[in-house]
Write a protein that binds this DNA or RNA. Structure first.
Length: 547
RNA sequence: GUCCACGUAGCUCAGCUGGAUAGAGCAUGCGCCUUCUAAGCGCACGGUCGAGGGUUCGAGUCCCCCCGUGGACACCA
């Protein structure tokens, strides 16, 4: 809630009180930004909401409220009833322009909120297995997860970014065997990658590197030790590659947690014991089961197989228990669509451990289809024909790829047209915002005067529009963080860039004839540049000074 | 078969806890550079919001039922 809306709300609240003796809560008064300029700067449907309760015509109620409204206190120049019972507000120009002083002062900090709750939040994303290159689904999760955590931090949340490395499961043995086969091939031997192994080209490259380093040392042996060697070196190399690719994509993590370390620290046994102590496990058919059906799952799940080995679910539960033990009040997992059926299980396990299910929120990131030359790119890591994150970056660049992924809600299916994304032209939306920023910087470079300290002459409709958008910036961030929808920031960027381009067309900033107005407009330009840059930073896209 | 998500302009997608004439980009057509970056601006074209019912002052938004798309339904990870 910003100052402008806050004061308007308060004044409305008082007016309703005086007019009808009704005490409304702040959240009962809805202030919105009208779609059309002739509906004012802000509007409210408060009269319509009161209509039922008061058994009166909403238009009459609106008029009565306005009769009691303190315009000066509300910051309102003109307020009028409209339509079926809306009240439209036209604000005092100088109240809107106050935002400029704030933006110019806060600069990089503009948009930053302070929250007073001490909630610690853990956000886990990507967490791709270290068995191959990152595919577009991972890339989408990476772009969204990284942007979301930047936004949450800006909104004042205490956020830790985490990557869970599945380095202990059976898939790692498959990777090791596959790598071994690639190594033998590199040594000129006959060897086949297992059918359930990993056929990606990344292992060929790693194998070549190993050959270069150790020569034919392991070409003739095939013992447990040999496999362990490939297992270890494969993990090291694959993990290193993951980190590098993500860093190139400007995606960072605070914590990398290894599944193996969960085992090594005895956390799996601890989790199993805690579940058993809570009476949530039982034995049947030689296996140990978790009563997930007590918590809205379709069927109970196996924790310990009849062979005595753990299923993948148990270490995952242990991992989430570890997060709670590390002091996180809330855990947010961004999982790929293929993990859909996993949500109920995991949430059930959280409850079985004794925590409320809300402590874990799972957002599904839908797969994305890659389109090139009008056809779909398939992305199977196992066929070797994978489209990797690296390929995407090479095709279209980090900015465009990140922008495209973040611009769409994560839970919807989407197509990424690489032809479009790679085009350095006006057909590509990402450059629209960057170009606006470059234009802003250009004006600032060309300016010879100082920025004004008061802004009472900015009364052009395009100027007012920009002011209102900047006023909305912190609230937009709070909304994007709360709903966990980073694409709202993209929408905002498009709106702001569009408003600026329109302003640029209608209002000349640097005008020798009118230095006073120029100095004020220069302040507006600087503030918009700050806001646009801050917004682009939230989604990890560069704000270039020249294009 | 069961469960979940999605279905909005020719294409890709927005649409804030239900609000005024459903928006943007791309594509198509027409205008605008002797002035701060034309990677831009303005105008036009384009819709039974998948179909049908319901809830109410009001539904793209909530409920029910169909149709379509994707995904999930292991003692695999």
């Amino acid at each position: 809630m910003n100052q402008i809306e806050h004061k308007l709300k308060q004044a409305l609240q008082e007016a309703v009180q005086h007019a009808f003796g009704v005490e409304l809560l702040p959240e009962e008064i809805v202030i919105e930004l009208p779609k059309q300029v002739n509906f004012g700067d802000y509007s409210s449907n408060v009269a319509m909401r009161l209509a039922k309760q008061l058994r009166q015509n909403p238009k009459m109620i609106a008029q009565e409220i306005l009769n009691h409204l303190d315009n000066e206190k509300a910051g309102v120049r003109l307020a009028e009833p409209a339509g079926v019972g809306f009240i439209n507000f036209f604000m005092l120009q100088d109240r809107l322009a106050d935002i400029l002083t704030l933006v110019l002062k806060q600069d990089k900090e503009f948009g930053q909120s302070i929250r007073h709750d001490a909630h610690k939040i853990n956000v886990e994303y990507v967490s791709a297995n270290p068995t191959g290159d990152l595919h577009p689904g991972h890339a989408r999760g990476a772009a969204i997860g990284d942007s979301l955590t930047r936004i949450m931090k800006k909104a004042g949340y205490d956020v830790t970014r985490e990557y869970y490395v599945n380095d202990a499961g059976n898939q790692i043995n498959n990777m090791a065997k596959s790598l071994q086969a690639r190594y033998l091939q590199a040594c000129g031997k006959e060897a086949e990658v297992p059918t359930d192994g990993y056929h990606g080209k990344d292992l060929i490259e790693i194998a070549a590197g190993i050959r270069a380093q150790i020569g034919d040392l392991y070409a003739e042996t095939n013992t447990e030790e040999t496999l362990a060697y490939f297992r270890t070196i494969g993990l090291v190399e694959e993990t290193k590659k993951l980190r590098e690719d993500l860093a190139t994509f400007r995606v960072e993590f605070d914590v990398w947690t290894s599944e193996q370390s969960i085992y090594d620290r005895g956390l799996v046994e601890k989790a199993l014991k805690q579940l058993t102590d809570h009476g949530k496990t039982y034995e049947s058919e030689g296996a140990v089961w978790l009563r997930t059906t007590d918590f809205n799952d379709d069927k109970d799940r196996v924790l310990v197989k009849s062979t005595g080995l753990y299923t993948y679910l148990l270490p995952d539960i242990a991992y989430h228990l570890d997060k709670k033990d590390r002091g996180f009040d809330q855990m947010i997992d961004l999982l790929g669509a293929d993990h859909h059926g996993y949500i109920n299980r995991l949430k059930a396990a959280i409850q079985a451990l004794g925590y409320p299910s809300e402590d874990l929120e799972v957002d599904i990131i839908q797969m994305a289809r890659m389109i090139k030359d009008g056809e779909e790119f398939k992305m199977s890591k196992r066929t070797g024909k994978a489209v990797a994150l690296k390929d995407l970056i090479e095709e279209a660049g980090v900015d465009a790829v990140r922008y495209y992924f973040v611009s769409r809600a994560g839970d919807t299916h989407m197509d990424l047209d690489l032809d479009m994304a790679s085009r350095q032209s006006n057909e590509n939306p990402v450059y629209y915002a960057q170009y606006a920023h470059a234009r802003l910087c250009s004006i600032l470079r060309n300016a010879t005067m100082e920025i004004a300290t008061e802004f009472s002459d900015l009364s052009h409709p395009k100027e007012a529009e920009l002011l209102k958008q900047m006023i909305d910036f912190p609230q937009m961030i709070a909304d994007a963080a709360f709903t966990r929808q980073p694409h709202k920031v993209c929408n905002y960027i498009q709106r702001l860039a569009s408003s600026f381009h329109a302003f640029y067309g209608e209002c000349h900033v640097l005008d020798q004839e009118n230095p006073a107005l120029s100095a004020q407009r220069l302040g507006l330009v600087k503030a918009v540049q700050i806001t646009l840059r801050n917004a682009l930073t939230l989604i990890g896209v560069d704000a270039p000074e020249k294009m």
